[in-house]
Design a protein around this nucleic acid. Structure first.
Lengths: 146, 146
DNA sequence: CCTTTATAGTTAACATGTTTATTAAAATGA
DNA sequence: TCATTTTAATAAACATGTTAACTATAAAGG
């Protein structure tokens, strides 16, 4: 008898189930992004910036679910590659405001159709209702305090 | 109007929802593991090995949702730290068979109560029914082909 | 004011994620 | 049986994840 015979087996483990589900969803997205030398993280950042406009880095970190140290590095290369601009906030000099560039928006534009096709494929296979239910449950899970 | 005004906003993005939910679930697990110098990945590997016995690396990778190159590195340090043993399979010399050691099992044993408490806390807040529903939906999502 | 505390971001160090290439061994098939 | 293909694992290179320590600035409280 193993150590975790009193615990739930890994087959119904929530962390692993979340990881597996994410792999399934992200696989085609990564395929899409690989052709244009953009990582999954940079894609999320571009989407957040396109949606929210000029925001500080902490906001990006929160929205795109990235830690600040990672974000610092990623934005450095994105700025060097001309996908975003950064400037110090004049009122609060601790803050760095980040904005998407035309080149950054172009990346979103070019991949919009593929991105939509992926979403639609998932919805077609899962069904809109189940997908909504899943998103609701994930929201609820994310909101709890353990 | 932004580029993705025709797309779903990041707020109902499945990839980010999965990521956020995972962060919530893993935060207390990481707290638990940090005290004993074990990463989340090593914890998953120990659980899989305890559950399945001696298995080849590909099986671990599949069960613990890790890529083989990562696993190669992680097992190297786990073997050095005496948490697992590795041996070449005699029939198929390509395979490496991995087994948990007593020291590895001890790590599971020591953290069993905390691990259970975390699971119970999540279940208490979400409810068993919703949690099962969520696991079902995640299983279903993971099974689709995009 | 001035000290204390909190916040935004960066840096450093190490672990893992991810892709591509490579090696060795096993399976396939003419 | 031998060339071809597939599989298991590793290596290398670069990006990100994660924690701890640190800097600069702002906010709070006396």
């Amino acid at each position: 008898m193993n150590t975790q015979s009193h615990t739930k087996s890994t087959s119904r483990s929530l962390p692993i189930a979340l990881l597996r589900a994410r792999e399934t969803v992200m696989a085609p997205v990564r395929d899409m992004l690989q052709g244009i030398q953009i990582t999954e993280q940079k894609w999320r950042i571009l989407r957040v910036l396109d949606e929210l406009g000029e925001v500080e880095q902490s906001t990006i970190a929160n929205e795109a679910c990235l830690l600040l140290p990672s974000l610092t590095r990623i934005l450095r290369t994105m700025e060097a590659d001309g996908q975003v601009t950064r400037r110090q906030d004049s009122r609060d000099k601790r803050r760095t405001m980040v904005m998407i560039t035309d080149a950054g928006r172009e990346i979103l534009k070019v991949n919009l159709a593929t991105s939509l096709a992926i979403s639609n494929s998932i919805e077609a296979q899962m069904g809109r209702e189940k997908l909504d239910k899943l998103l609701d449950l994930l929201d609820e899970l994310q909101a709890i305090k353990v």
